[in-house]
Write a protein that binds this DNA or RNA. Structure first.
Lengths: 237, 237
DNA sequence: AAGTGGTCTAGACCACCGA
DNA sequence: CGGTGGTCTAGACCACTTC
């Protein structure tokens, strides 16, 4: 039996992303016509359109009226939008990945943070080495209030997106984030994890992330390799 | 005759925006249910949903499953705003200043840059050490097409804002900029100018700045001290 | 002219929220 | 429970691109 819990259009969306990630669809390639996809996956054309529309909004696909739907070239045309690591790497034409470093539940290290996260003291801490094309790109440490996300610690996180889990299982969507970005030299532990020489500087991101109700649900700290990563942004007067 | 060229859902979208702009719908207010809007404007519910979906994507409306559709509370998402060095330092509570390093007119170092700036080959180069509270903060190098800004090289620039001169004397306003931000180790010359140890990493900003007509009028390169400067930004989904 | 995406309909049932 | 948004269908015709 097909587990029908996931909406059809989300399933198709995921299948399309997988085809792109596996290289079956390359940037510039044409997708099959909507009517054909509808027949192929046994759904109505409107449902196909919903899947494609979301991917167009995420800059993964491009529609050309009268011509076809294409896999986007990775040009990074957008301003700075809030994205997960996976989404951002895909936009840059790289394959995102993860290696779990640490997964634990701790008492809140500071009353301040406990209050921010409304955590009542207990925090779930997830530390992952983030990969791009199988090479280390960043160390990401997320802190979440465990009382809001029961059983989150039981997930695997090697091949799962944290934000997707939060959105689909806990109905929490990230809508806004505040970041402070600094430049530092890596600690010995960081340079080892990232597999870089100790002379390579790194970006430090400190982020608080807000959900759809404007509550903070995550405090994160990321360390990005300075030799592989650059920030691109568009700003307005 | 009603010119029906505009799609129905775009028409509804515009009507909703107008209601919000006129204050008939205020932030936090509930919209009429989708089914009601459909009847009211004589269109199908799917068409109503398309109008609402676009406004949700633009952060104008918020949908709450099982509850209703609401006018969003916060205003237009604004990431970091385009500011001059002086403006930014004042915002951070510091006193901005300048020390002139170099001021010259050169032949364009690359055909590419000449084309970007429509400079016909000659560039005005301005290199300044930027101070905050009388201490070095950044090295800023601006390149401008001299044919657009005749006599700009005769200005002093020690106590004048470049962008203010451009706006007041040449009627050029900055409206948009694209930045690439990298992290590097300083060159010996940079560490000496910035008065920092060679072990302190620095931010490298590469910026192209657009005027009110969407033409590039400046290419700039800045080096910021990593021990004094941090980027603060707010980003939206 | 043929084929594509763009718009639109008139229903249906499901999932979630609040009283 | 009733009312809301969320998903989905099986069509239809229009607008655009490509040939």
């Amino acid at each position: 039996m097909n587990v029908k819990k996931r909406p059809l259009y989300k399933q198709l969306k995921q299948k399309l992303i997988q085809k792109i990630e596996r290289g079956e669809l390359k940037p510039g390639d044409v997708l099959p016509p909507e009517r054909e996809l509808a027949e192929l996956f046994e759904m109505s054309r409107m449902t196909v359109r919903q899947a494609i529309s979301e991917l167009v909004n995420e800059y993964v696909l491009i529609r050309r009226h009268g011509s076809g739907t294409y896999v986007a070239e990775h040009k990074i045309p957008q301003g700075k939008k809030l994205k997960s690591f996976s989404e951002e790497m895909r936009l840059r034409g790289m394959l995102p990945g993860s290696k779990l470093c640490e997964k634990k539940i701790v008492l809140s290290p500071s009353a301040n943070m406990a209050a921010e996260l409304k955590s009542e003291g207990k925090l779930f801490i997830l530390k992952r080495l983030r990969l791009a094309d199988f090479e280390p790109m960043a160390i990401e440490t997320s802190m979440l209030p465990i009382n809001r996300f029961a059983n989150l610690e039981k997930r695997n996180f090697e091949n799962e997106s944290l934000y997707e889990i939060l959105e689909e299982e806990y109905n929490v969507k990230m809508t806004k984030a505040q970041q402070k970005i600094e430049v530092k030299m890596p600690t010995p532990q960081e340079s080892e994890l990232l597999d870089i020489n100790y002379t390579i500087p790194v970006f430090h991101f400190k982020q608080v992330t807000f959900d759809q109700n404007d509550n903070i649900f995550e405090v994160a700290h990321s360390v990005y390799r300075g030799d592989r990563y650059e920030i691109e942004t568009e700003i307005y007067r």
